[in-house]
Amino acid sequence: MTLGIPLVALLALIVYLLVRSGELRVWHVILTGLLGFYLDRTHLAEPIGAAVVWIAKGLTHTT
């Protein structure tokens, strides 16, 4: 049993609340980076990467 997805969900909730509070401190940035690290290790990494590329291409109008 892995704790990958529940850990990512918990970190995502914490990061969302920290960003919503409007104050971003050093430990907030570390938690955000940790969320990205753990999110990359889940099965969601490939669809998220594809979505980021799609958005970037849409905003820059490159092919």
Results as ranks from 00 to 15, higher is better:
Gly4Ala: 13
Gly4Tyr: 06
Gly4Glu: 12
Ile5Lys: 11
Ile5Thr: 11
Leu7Met: 12
Leu7Gln: 11
Val8Asp: 03
Val8Met: 02
Val8Gly: 01
Val8Phe: 00
Ala9Leu: 14
Ala9Lys: 14
Ala9Val: 13
Ala9Pro: 01
Leu10Trp: 05
Leu10His: 08
Leu10Ala: 15
Leu11Ala: 13
Leu11Asn: 06
Leu11Met: 11
Leu11Trp: 06
Leu11Glu: 13
Ala12Leu: 09
Ala12Arg: 03
Leu13Glu: 14
Leu13Arg: 13
Leu13Val: 15
Ile14Ala: 10
Ile14Val: 15
Ile14Lys: 03
Val15Cys: 09
Val15Thr: 08
Val15Met: 01
Val15His: 01
Tyr16Ser: 14
Tyr16Pro: 03
Tyr16Lys: 15
Leu17Arg: 15
Leu17Cys: 13
Leu17Ala: 15
Leu17Ile: 09
Leu17Phe: 10
Leu18Cys: 11
Leu18Thr: 07
Leu18Pro: 02
Leu18Glu: 14
Val19Met: 13
Val19Glu: 13
Arg20Tyr: 13
Arg20Thr: 13
Arg20Trp: 10
Arg20Pro: 06
Ser21Tyr: 04
Ser21His: 10
Ser21Val: 08
Ser21Arg: 14
Gly22Met: 04
Gly22Ile: 10
Gly22Lys: 08
Gly22Asp: 04
Glu23Arg: 12
Glu23Pro: 05
Leu24Val: 13
Leu24Tyr: 01
Arg25Asn: 09
Arg25Leu: 08
Arg25Met: 05
Arg25Asp: 04
Val26Ser: 14
Val26Gln: 12
Val26Met: 12
Val26Asp: 12
Val26Tyr: 08
Trp27Phe: 10
Trp27His: 09
His28Glu: 04
His28Met: 03
His28Lys: 02
Ile30Asp: 00
Ile30Thr: 06
Leu31Lys: 02
Thr32Ile: 08
Thr32Phe: 07
Gly33Asn: 06
Gly33Asp: 01
Leu34Asp: 01
Leu35Gly: 00
Leu35Met: 05
Leu35Arg: 00
Leu35Phe: 03
Phe37Leu: 14
Phe37Met: 11
Phe37Gln: 06
Tyr38Val: 10
Tyr38Cys: 10
Leu39Glu: 00
Leu39Arg: 00
Asp40Thr: 10
Asp40Phe: 09
Asp40Asn: 12
Asp40Cys: 12
Arg41Gly: 08
Arg41Ser: 10
Arg41Pro: 00
Thr42Lys: 01
His43Leu: 15
His43Met: 11
Leu44Lys: 05
Leu44Asn: 07
Leu44Trp: 10
Leu44Val: 13
Ala45Pro: 05
Ala45Met: 07
Ala45Arg: 13
Ala45Leu: 09
Ala45Gly: 07
Ala45Phe: 06
Glu46Gln: 15
Glu46Leu: 15
Glu46Tyr: 11
Glu46Ile: 15
Glu46Gly: 06
